[in-house]
Computed example of a mutant assay.
Amino acid sequence: MSFSLETRDLTIRFGGHVAVDAVSCAFRPGTLTAIVGPNGAGKTTYFNLISGQLKASSGRVFVGGDDITSLPAPERTKRGLGRAFQLTNLFPNLSVMENIRLAIQARRGMGLNLWSIWSNHRALIAEAEAILERIALTARRDAPAASLPHGDQRKLEVGILIALEPTVFMFDEPTAGMSVDEVPVILDLIREIKRDMTKTILLVEHKMDVVRELSDRIIVLHNGKLAADGEPAEVIASPVVQQAYLGMAAEDEEEAEAAR
């Protein structure tokens, strides 16, 4: 099986600080990889290098075997990289429906003009409505995105990502700032995407219960370096990872396991 995404010695320096330090990882279709580590470990910076928000100091990024290192973020999206941001990335003054519809238009190469595609309007609306139902926002279809509470904005952002139909889904703390009642909708959407074995999912997440449940693999970043990479049980059970990178003592984890 080929890799859908690969980084080779990916590095970025800010002055004398190396934020991501020669990280080499390959990601296969049909797997969800959780990227964990303490604050400042380089997780979001690594995402930004992959998706093109930051330019690497050195190293390469490959999608489907093609070198995309020199491509800007929009071109990387066209190559199949889909990024959901830690902070919502929406068209705030447009409605929920229009946000989804524009993402569908962009995927189909129709551009972002709201009014120039009347012949395709009905099909676009039908596809957008199906996505709104999946993300539980049908009742808010006509509301401006800016008027949505934070949890609904996160759901809309995932809906936009689904509308783009990427090969690689990148979620940066998708449940951050959401209430306990709102989290299951996001997790169910990620589970649904995960069932498609042609898709690759990368997940930055601090909540270890979410990581345990969803991940097929965990990689740990620390001071910008790749510190661990393996199956979830193996990585989580490592005393070094628990103490230094996940902020828990080994004995606490043993007690937690015993209590389950």
Rank of each mutant, 00 (worst) to 15 (best):
I218M: 12
A143Y: 06
A143G: 00
S70Q: 12
I193K: 07
D216F: 03
I162G: 01
N93I: 05
V23W: 01
R28I: 08
A146I: 11
A126Y: 01
I104P: 08
V36C: 15
L81H: 04
G37S: 08
R28P: 06
P174E: 09
L114N: 09
A250E: 14
A84M: 09
M1W: 15
V241E: 10
L203M: 13
G80C: 09
N89Y: 07
S58D: 06
A163Q: 04
L32G: 05
I186K: 00
C25S: 10
E253K: 12
E257L: 12
L114S: 15
Q105L: 05
S215P: 10
I131P: 00
R108I: 08
S95I: 00
E205M: 10
I190K: 01
P92K: 02
A139E: 10
I125P: 02
G82K: 08
Q243C: 01
E255N: 09
L87C: 09
R76Q: 06
L71E: 03
E173P: 00
E157A: 15
R217M: 05
D152M: 06
A145S: 14
A163T: 03
K55E: 13
R107T: 02
K225Q: 13
F91C: 02
E75I: 12
D188I: 09
I236Y: 14
K155A: 05
L203E: 02
A139L: 08
P239R: 14
S215W: 01
P239D: 11
T45A: 13
T31W: 04
P92E: 09
L187S: 02
R122E: 13
R141A: 10
T31A: 14
D67R: 07
G151K: 01
V210H: 02
V211Y: 03
K78Q: 10
A84Q: 05
E231V: 12
E75M: 14
A106I: 06
L5R: 03
V220Q: 02
E231C: 08
R8G: 04
A233L: 12
H17E: 06
S58Q: 15
L148F: 00
Y46G: 12
P72C: 11
A163N: 07
I218R: 07
K43L: 11
Y46N: 07
Q153G: 11
P166A: 12
V240D: 14
S147V: 02
V158G: 03
S147N: 08
G42T: 13
M248R: 12
W118Q: 10
A143S: 14
S215M: 08
N99H: 03
K194A: 11
L203S: 06
T77C: 13
V63A: 12
L161W: 03
E173M: 04
S58K: 13
E257K: 15
F47Y: 09
A136T: 06
